[in-house]
Design a protein around this nucleic acid. Structure first.
Lengths: 219, 219
DNA sequence: GGCCGTCTGGATTGTCCAGTCCAATTTCGT
DNA sequence: ACGAAATTGGACTGGACAATCCAGACGGCC
C-alpha cells in the first residue's frame, strides 16, 4: 500500500531502480514544465542521461512512462502538503494549509499548473488509463481533506446542516481553479481569493465562529 | 469593440473571410477535442477542406492560428452564457446560470475542459501571447460576473462586508476547478458542488437570505 | 571463476509534421 | 473589360520523433 509501484520495480536490481527513478524524475520535471506532448523522449533521454535502450527497457512506450510520472507526481503533491493534509480539522489548520499551497505558487512565480491537474487536463480525453490514474490521485487528495472536515463535523464544530464531503470537493475545486487563474494571470491573488472564499464559507458554518473559549481541560 | 478580429480580416474579400472562418472553426473543434499539440495542421486542412497555401495565406504560422482560436472560443464561451451572464444580480439568477453551465457539461458527457481554460493550461508557459489572450478572455468573463455582484451590493442585497470583486473571482475559480474535476471523474457532480458551495456562501452574505417580501411596488 | 539475466550504447527506420514554393485561378476595383 | 490583388492547388523539404534492433558490458549467485 505504501509503494504502489511495487509491481513495476520488482525484478530490478538497485542500479536498475536508480536508473528508472532517474528517468521518471526527469520526465516529470520536463512534463511539468512543457506538458506531455511537448516533451520528447529525446529530451528525457538527454536530461536523465540514458540511452534509448534504457528507456525502453524500463517502459513499454511513452504512455507507460506517463503513467509512472502521474504516480510520481501524485506522491510528490500529497507528501508536499504534509503534515497539514493529515489534520485539516480546524479553521486555523485550513488557513495554514492554504498558505502553504499559495507559497508553492509564489515559489514557482505562478508558472506551471498543478502537477497532477495539468496532466489530467491534457490527457483526460486521449488516454483513458491516464485519466483513471489522475482520478485516483484526486480521490486520495479529496479523501484527506474530507477526513479533516468530517472530524470537525463529528466533534460538533460544524453545524449539523454542513456537508463535509461536499465542502471537501469545493475546496479541491478552489485549489484547481485558483491555480489555473493564477497561472494564467501570473498572479497568486486569484488562488488566495478562491481558497479564502471557501474557507470563509466553512467558517460561517462553524458552530462557534470565533473566540471559542476553552470550557474544560478534562478530556 | 464588437469585432475584436477586425485588424486581421480587413483586406479580405467575403470569400476569403468565409474560408478563414472555416479554418478557425475547424481548428477550434479539433483543438478542443485533442488539445493544441495533438492537432496537426494536416488535420485542420482536412477538416476545413483547405490546402496548405490557404492555411498559410490566412495565418502566419500555427501559433497565429492558435491566437485566432482563442479569440473565437472566448466569443463562443461568453455568448453561450447569455443572457444569464449579463445579469447575475440575484441568487436565483446565479442558480440559473450555474444550471446552464452544468447542462453544457452534461451535454458533452463531461468530455473536454473549458474551451478557454484548457487552452490556457496547455499554453500558459510556452506561448506568452496565448497566455495574455486567455488572460484577457478571463478578465472579460470575470468582469461580467463582478458587475452582477456589484449591482447586488449597490442595491443593498449583499452585506456591507461582502466583497463582490473577490466573490466573482471565487465563482470563476469554482467554474474552472469544477470543470476539471468533472472532466477527470467523468461526472458532473463535482462541478455542481463547487458552484453550489460558492453560491451558498454568497447567499449567506445576503441581507435577507430568504422569503424576501415585496414591501413596496413604488420605486 | 563462470554462467545467466540485467543493464546499457548507439545506429537505424519509418512516419509525421510545420512550413515553403511556384503556378494557376478567381475576384475586385475602375 | 482588364490589370492587380486576392485566393487556391498541391508537391516538396528538412527536421523531429517514437520505436526497434543488435551487440556488448556489468553484476549477482552457485
Amino acid at each position: 500500500m505504501t509503494d504502489a509501484s511495487a509491481p513495476q520495480v520488482d525484478g530490478l536490481t538497485p542500479k536498475g531502480r536508480a536508473t528508472r527513478r532517474r528517468i521518471v524524475a526527469a520526465a516529470a520535471d520536463l512534463m511539468f514544465e512543457h506538458g506531455v506532448a511537448r516533451t520528447s523522449l529525446d529530451d528525457v533521454k538527454e536530461s536523465a542521461e540514458v540511452s534509448s535502450s534504457q528507456l525502453y527497457h524500463y517502459f513499454e512506450d511513452k504512455s507507460a512512462l506517463v503513467s509512472a510520472v502521474i504516480e510520481y507526481q501524485t506522491e510528490e503533491v500529497l507528501s508536499g502538503q504534509q503534515p497539514h493534509l493529515a489534520s485539516l480539522d480546524s479553521i486555523p489548520a485550513l488557513r495554514a494549509w492554504r498558505s502553504v499551497l499559495v507559497g508553492f505558487r509564489r515559489d514557482l512565480e505562478c508558472r506551471g499548473g498543478c502537477p497532477i491537474g495539468s496532466l489530467g487536463s491534457e490527457l483526460a480525453d486521449t488516454d483513458q488509463r491516464a485519466r483513471a490514474e489522475v482520478a485516483a490521485g484526486f480521490r486520495r487528495w479529496e479523501t484527506s481533506i474530507r477526513d479533516g472536515l468530517r472530524a470537525m463535523r463529528n466533534r460538533g464544530d460544524l453545524m449539523r446542516g454542513a456537508k463535509p464531503d461536499d465542502l471537501a470537493v469545493a475546496l479541491l475545486a478552489a485549489v484547481q481553479g485558483g491555480i489555473l487563474l493564477s497561472q494564467i494571470h501570473r498572479d497568486a491573488r486569484p488562488m488566495e481569493i478562491a481558497l479564502d472564499t471557501v474557507i470563509d464559507h466553512i467558517e460561517l458554518l462553524t458552530v462557534r465562529p470565533r473566540k471559542r473559549r476553552v470550557r474544560s481541560r478534562a478530556r
